[in-house]
Simulated scan of single mutants.
Amino acid sequence: MAIRFKRRDREDPEINLIPFIDVLLVVLIFLMLTATFSRYTQLQVRLPEADADAAQAQAREIVVEVGPDGRYAVSGQMLAASSVQALTLALQQAAEGQTEPTLVINADAAATHQSVIHVMEAARNAGLQHITFATQQPRGR
């Protein structure tokens, strides 16, 4: 004799996943906060040594003076025109044959910002990448 159960009397099992997801999120946050991250991409590199005095002796400088009236002098020679194009040409001529020269901007305290910006724009046009500004110590020290 075969016993048959009616499907209507029996309920399907139901699993509630929401508490399970909540617990997993709390565990995930805990693991993220307590995990230690190490860098696997770091390499042990031994850098070459160089003599600092020899490097400074090779550095070439191009000095640009900016007067309070907006006139320019490149390496001690006054420029006839004070345009960006004339300054670019003078910087290119001063930098010929030099590898990565340093441009030193020596601007008067009364010089306008615009005249210093013209020097920086001309340096960019001439391909000069190393720029520095000259200053002086106060007289009281």
Rank of each mutant, 00 (worst) to 15 (best):
A107D: 15
N106Y: 00
A81N: 06
V104C: 09
T112L: 14
E100A: 04
I105H: 12
Q98R: 12
Q92T: 10
Q93F: 10
A95W: 09
Q85M: 01
D108N: 12
I105A: 06
Q98M: 10
Q114P: 03
Q114F: 08
H113G: 14
P101K: 04
A111N: 12
Q98V: 01
A107Y: 12
H113N: 14
G97T: 01
S115T: 08
T112D: 13
G97E: 01
H113R: 15
S82R: 08
T102W: 02
A109T: 09
E96G: 06
G97N: 01
A109S: 12
T88L: 09
T112A: 15
A111C: 10
S115V: 00
S83E: 06
Q93A: 14
S82C: 03
T102H: 02
A111I: 12
L89E: 14
T102C: 02
S83R: 05
A86Q: 03
S82I: 03
E100D: 07
Q114T: 12
A110G: 13
A110V: 09
Q93T: 14
E96V: 11
E96Y: 08
S83G: 07
N106T: 02
T102G: 01
A107G: 14
N106D: 13
E100Y: 03
T102S: 08
T88E: 15
Q85V: 02
D108I: 00
L89M: 11
Q93H: 14
V84N: 08
V116S: 15
A95N: 02
Q98S: 07
S82H: 06
Q92V: 05
Q98C: 01
A107S: 15
Q93W: 10
V116D: 10
A95E: 00
Q85A: 11
V116C: 15
Q114W: 07
H113V: 15
Q114S: 13
A95F: 07
P101N: 03
Q98P: 00
Q93E: 11
E100V: 00
T88V: 09
V104W: 09
L89I: 10
T88A: 14
D108R: 00
Q92H: 09
V116F: 04
S115E: 13
A90K: 13
Q92C: 09
A86E: 06
T88I: 06
Q98H: 09
V84T: 14
L89C: 03
Q92I: 07
L91Y: 09
A109E: 10
N106W: 00
Q92S: 12
A111P: 08
A109W: 09
I105E: 04
P101T: 04
L89S: 12
V84L: 05
N106M: 12
V84R: 11
L87Y: 05
E100I: 00
T99F: 03
A107N: 14
G97W: 00
L91C: 07
G97Y: 00
T88N: 10
L103N: 02
Q98I: 01
T102M: 05
A81E: 11
A90V: 10
T112M: 09
P101G: 04
E96M: 10
S83N: 05
S83T: 13
T102Y: 03
A90E: 04
T102I: 10
